[in-house]
């Protein structure tokens, strides 16, 4: 997907949350928002971009949020992979 658009969206999200609470909590809120509302391919792309480009163009809160998201996704990767393997095949249970 267009990374410029994802950067813009992530920054918008961070602008909301950084006005609501302290920086640590804001980063957590950004990560939670991305995890709950963004399709995995979008999350994967913003995480990869943040790592490769050191968060260029992202606000500090967005960077912190995306980095936190990356950690959370990494942590959950093994069980999620197992779960998604079960969900991948559409159609009724036999």
């Amino acid at each position: 997907m267009n990374i410029d658009l994802l950067i813009k969206m992530a920054n918008q999200i961070s602008e909301f949350f950084q006005g609501t609470t302290d920086p640590d909590k804001a980063a957590t809120d950004v990560a939670t928002h991305l995890r709950r509302y963004w399709d995995p391919r979008m999350r994967k792309q913003i995480v990869a971009y943040c790592e490769e480009r050191h968060g260029a163009g992202l606000t500090n809160t967005a960077i912190a949020g995306v980095q936190l998201l990356a950690q959370q996704e990494q942590k959950a990767a093994a069980p999620a992979a197992a779960a998604s393997a079960g969900a991948a095949a559409p159609g009724p249970k036999s």
């Binding site: 997907m1 509302y37 399709d39 995995p40 779960a83 998604s84 559409p90 009724p92």
Partner: peptide, 24 residues
């Protein structure tokens, strides 16, 4: 419904357009 369901959010309409342009 008798099927396993995904636990991840899917694409929103504008995201669908972006993903379409992306080929996914």
């Amino acid at each position: 419904w008798g099927v396993p369901l995904q636990s991840e959010p899917g694409l929103r309409i504008p995201n669908m357009f972006e993903a379409a342009l992306d080929g996914t």
